[in-house]
Structures are given as C-alpha cells and as structure tokens.
Simulated assay, not measured.
Amino acid sequence: MTISRTHIRRGSLITAVLALISSAFLVLPANADPVPFEDCPQGRFCLYDGSGGSGTRTDVAEGAKDEQYAGTVLSVKNNTRMWACVYTANQYGGSLQTVKPGNADAYVTDGVRWVVSSYKLVPTRALCFTGYERCENGDVCTFAERGGRGAMTVHVPAVDPATRNLGNSYGAEVAPKSVWNRTGKHLCFYLQPDYTGTWTGDDKKTYGAYVVLRGDSITIPGTLAGEFRSHELVNGTSECQ
C-alpha cells in the first residue's frame, strides 16, 4: 500500500509541472518584438534608416568605405572585426564617431539627426582620425582638414613659365591644413601664389618657405594652416626660395 501511495504522489507532481509548463507557453505573444540589430549578418557593417536598428538596412563588407554616402543613417551595427569610422561630412570630414567591433550606435539625439556623410572600416581606431591613405605614391596631396581628412587635392607638378618652378600655384579654394609629400623630392610651401612670401616661426626667425621633406605627412601648424598658395618640389631644401 505504501509503495502504491508513493507512486500516486509522484504522478500527481509530474502532471502539475507539465500543466505549468504548458500554461507558460500559452501566454507567450504570437509575434514577439525582434531584438534590435539581430538581423545584421556576421562580418557586415549594417546601416539602418531607422533608429534602434529599424527601417531599411544596407550592408557593407569588412574594409568597405564610402567618401560620399547618399543614404539616410539613424543607427548602425558593426558586426565586423574592424573599427567603423563615421563622419558628418564627405571625404572623412566634419565630426567623427567611432564604433568598435561588435557594437551598435545611434545618430539621433533629442530628436536631432546626426548626419552620416561618409564612413570607412579600418583595423585600428587611430586610423579613424586620419585620411592620408587616399594619397597615391608619387603624388603631392593637400587636405582641407587636419590629419589628412576632408577634401583632398592631388597636385600634378608643372613648370611655371615665369619662375621655372616645378610645382603648383593655387587659390584659397585649396587652403591646405595637412599634406602628404609622397614624391622623391622635398616640398617647399609659400604664402604667395608666385612662390614668395615670408612667415615668422615660434623662434622669432623669418622664413621664406615651409618645408615638408620627401615622404613626410604632416598637419600644418595652426598659424599657417590654410594660408599657403603655392609650392615647389626641389632636390635639396637649400633650393627653397
């Protein structure tokens, strides 16, 4: 009799547990809300035109870049192994946001949209702060912003008919704030478009040229940034005007 009563109690307990499990399943919603960004595939950087990973999704591969992104972006998911660099202006200019591997980010703050105009995926976060890599070997490239960011101008050296200088003369539309001299010659910058002009350094000395050595990339000092109007290529720095 004792054995029989014990079996009955166990059977009743199992029946009760099964009933609870069944009732739990019955109260689950038929269509649960999706987890934000869960649709972003592995190895992709996903850009959404809605907040919180909603709306239309655009996927780009690891290492992708776009200097003039035309779409609307309100949120992103970086499902790659690289850092995502997101900029408010074309050509990696303006304000910058960085998204580490595996993270998501949103671009609406207090109802104001943070415009995404360009992006790139790079191996390290430090590379988000520069854009020098766009300059090809053998070129002189000047940039509208510090660190090689912003609009880039590639200068094709020409011999000036009057001065015979090998270089370029340009106006305020170029206004270089950083430069990469990827040539085999040294680079002499001048404040005037005719390869002349002087400036005073922190040491109070007067100089006729600002020199960028062959192979060097540099952000031009604040007092001179955006002020140069010509440059020439020379074999030795003593050849600068």
Rank of each mutant, 00 (worst) to 15 (best):
T2H: 11
A61N: 12
S217A: 15
D49L: 05
A19L: 15
E145A: 10
P41M: 10
H7M: 15
N181L: 01
H155F: 00
R57W: 02
G93V: 00
Q192W: 04
L121M: 08
N168I: 03
T237D: 05
T58H: 11
A61P: 04
S95D: 14
V99I: 12
V211L: 07
P29K: 10
Y87N: 00
D160F: 01
V86R: 01
K120M: 11
G11V: 14
C85M: 05
R5G: 03
M1A: 09
G50M: 09
S23G: 13
G147A: 03
Q42S: 15
A158G: 10
K120W: 02
D160I: 02
V234E: 05
E173L: 14
Q97R: 07
V122S: 05
V99W: 00
G71H: 09
A172Q: 12
W83K: 01
Q241I: 06
I14A: 15
P221D: 04
V122R: 01
E145N: 15
H155R: 00
R149M: 04
W114G: 02
D203P: 05
G52N: 15
T88F: 03
D110N: 15
E62K: 10
V159C: 06
C240T: 03
C188T: 02
V179K: 00
L13A: 13
Y207D: 09
D139A: 13
P193Q: 06
L213W: 08
S54K: 12
R81T: 15
G50Q: 08
A225E: 06
D59I: 11
F129R: 14
R10V: 14
N79Q: 05
T153F: 15
C40T: 04
P161F: 04
S217T: 12
A225Y: 03
A16R: 07
H7N: 10
G215L: 01
H7D: 09
L191I: 12
Y69P: 01
D49N: 15
T58G: 03
W199K: 03
R44H: 12
S4C: 10
I8F: 10
A84I: 02
D160C: 04
T124H: 14
V76D: 02
T56H: 09
V122T: 14
G167M: 00
Y48W: 09
I21C: 14
A172Y: 07
S238T: 09
R134G: 08
P34T: 00
F129Q: 13
S23E: 09
G43V: 08
R10S: 11
K177E: 14
P221I: 02
A61Q: 13
P221W: 04
R57L: 14
R9P: 01
Y119W: 13
P176A: 07
R229Q: 06
T15Y: 11
V234W: 03
D202Y: 08
A61H: 10
Q241M: 07
G147K: 02
V27P: 01
K185E: 07
T124R: 11
Y87E: 05
N103D: 08
L127G: 04
G138Y: 07
L96Q: 01
Q68I: 11
G55C: 13
